[in-house]
Amino acid sequence: MTTGVDLGVPSTQAIRSDEDVVRVRQLVRTTAVAVRLSLVDQTKLVTAASELARNTLIYGGGGSAEVSTVSDGRRRGVRIVFADEGPGIPDLDLALTDGYTTGGGLGLGLSGARRLVDDFDIWTAVGEGTRITITKWSR
């Protein structure tokens, strides 16, 4: 691996601006290539990361994305943790509904991203922030 992304050593990208969202996409792409996700799976993962990174920036007021490669013994995968210390999500069920938006978007960010990955885990507390963990496994 020449990308410097090793199993267990996460790379962290701060999300403070528009350009950072682009950097998150590129970091996720390199990592996905390194663990040999299929082209379609790479595309799904990068798209999901793009949605969530933008959410972190717009709704969370900025934060970070931590990208690491993981293994469950049989398969390898990419795990990304998006964390912010923003206002949190008051009604999670509502936020995960297709078409629901408070930011004037299409409302596909959270629900769409969830469909694009294998594991989706979300923790949120009002006034404390939001932490979303996604994983995509190689087939």
Binding site: V40, T43, T47, D98, L106, L108, G112, R115, L116
Partner: peptide, 14 residues
Amino acid sequence: MRPAVAITLVELGL
């Protein structure tokens, strides 16, 4: 549009 992009868009619901 690339096939992988189209497949992803369908999954995303766009």
